[in-house]
Amino acid sequence: MNPISTTSATTSARSIEAGRWAISTVFLLNGAGIGLWAAHVPVVQERMGIDTSTLSMVLLTIAAGALMAMPLMGGLTSRFGTRRMTLLSGFAFALMLGLIMKVDGLAPLFVTAFLFGISNGALDVAMNANASEVETARGLPTMSSFHGFFSLGGLFGAALGGLIIGQGWGHGQGAMAMGVLTTAVLAVAAPRVLAFAPTHAHGSHFSLPRGAALGLGLLALLCFAVEGALVDWSGLLMQERTGAAPATAALGFSAFSIAMAACRFAGDRMIVRFGALRVMVVGGIAMFAGLATAVLSTHFLLSACGFALIGLGAANVVPLLFGAASRIPGMSAGAGVAAVATLGYGGLLLAPPVLGWIATQSSIMMALGVLSLSGLVIAMSAGVVKRHG
């Protein structure tokens, strides 16, 4: 951001900082909701009396709703602005967060899962679009910290979910209360979420991946696939491999979230000191080693350490890919980031049901073991961030 000395510029700078913390709050709330859902997946399966195959279909329904909403939301943010769409999708997400863990009956579960997916996919696109605008307005790298707040939210949501389940409130009561709390916090943050001019006259925030964006997007897909797998399957893996109770098994995702959040908040400094290429290579190797450890270990603490190692490795891969996407020649920063993010979030949403299908043919251990190879692919392809650095 160019230095400006006028009073109005000072006010603008303060507004930008307020907007930064407001959209950070939205990332935090979204992460908390996803963490809460991760902790409740085994409980929902048990309460509904469904097998792994049916649970996979529920997760696929969530993914279908999200992927249907993403291109639509890309156009809506361009037409109506990212602030309005972020708030609308945020309030919808808060509503569905409570309902998906409360409904009874298989048909209502599938309907609610679809709507939950729509709200989450729409919020993903809208808040990232607003975050990219805030980062541009600040003129400083900020995306890692936004995603750090998402990870911090995941930690809080998973820990709270374990507490709720342990207290016997895991059949929807705690989730409904969390939905109300999310709505209240979002309402407080809403006035400070920055409004930027709609961009329909200059292109959309949503763009199909092509060329360099496609390569970056595929790497983002692999990284998000690992994260999505941990959201929905980490609890079941911990129970199956270590014999942990559902409330205790939620700590596996908590370990992942703690490590990822801490490393993301330090991400900008790490990249300056060690370089993007080295951070990317080490990150991919750590993802592979961590997931292999979590899959093979039968000891709770060692398995939890494996999840933490995944978080350390994956923490700055996506921010690096987003940064590279914003510098693709011949593409605007917004179009590049949108294209890579869309493909990446496709991995986040589609990986859990696909892995669930693999698990029904073999085991969760085998499904996640295959996924661990994603870390090696990321490490071997790290040069892509240097080419667009």
Rank of each mutant, 00 (worst) to 15 (best):
F265M: 13
F80N: 03
L160M: 15
S234Q: 05
L67T: 13
G81E: 02
G31M: 09
T52W: 00
E46C: 01
R20N: 08
D232V: 04
T11D: 08
A131Y: 05
Y345W: 05
I285K: 12
T142C: 06
C223P: 01
R79M: 13
L123H: 06
H40G: 06
A250P: 04
A367Q: 06
S24I: 03
L28W: 00
G203P: 06
R264D: 11
S326A: 15
S254A: 12
G174K: 01
M287E: 04
L301E: 07
L59C: 02
M280C: 10
A187T: 09
P191L: 02
Q167K: 05
M96G: 01
A292T: 00
L60A: 14
V125F: 12
F322K: 12
A189D: 11
A187F: 09
F93R: 01
V26G: 13
V188Y: 12
M287S: 00
T360G: 13
I16L: 10
A184W: 04
L236P: 05
L368N: 04
A324E: 11
T182D: 05
G174A: 05
G31D: 08
A38H: 02
F110W: 03
W169Q: 03
A126N: 12
G75M: 14
G389Q: 05
S151D: 10
V125P: 12
L343Q: 04
A276C: 08
L222Q: 01
M178I: 07
G203Y: 12
S53A: 15
V281D: 08
S254L: 08
T77F: 08
T182S: 15
M85I: 13
P42W: 00
V317A: 13
A259S: 10
G375A: 14
P352S: 06
A333Q: 03
S15E: 15
S374L: 09
L106S: 10
L155Y: 03
D124P: 07
M331F: 10
L291H: 00
A158M: 02
L106I: 13
V103K: 11
T182L: 06
A324F: 10
S144R: 13
P319D: 07
S326G: 15
V377D: 09
I34L: 15
F116V: 10
L28F: 14
M1E: 13
T82W: 06
V281K: 14
I378F: 06
G117K: 05
G215V: 00
S145R: 11
L214T: 01
F322Q: 12
S53P: 01
S144G: 08
M365N: 10
A325I: 02
L302A: 14
A335C: 04
C263K: 04
A122H: 09
H205W: 13
V384I: 15
L291R: 00
F206P: 07
N130M: 05
V337I: 11
V354G: 06
M143G: 03
I100L: 02
R20T: 10
H388P: 02
L99W: 09
G389M: 09
M178D: 03
G306D: 07
M280A: 13
I100K: 06
G168V: 00
F322P: 10
L194R: 09
H299Y: 03
G49V: 01
T6C: 09
H388C: 01
F196P: 10
A276W: 02
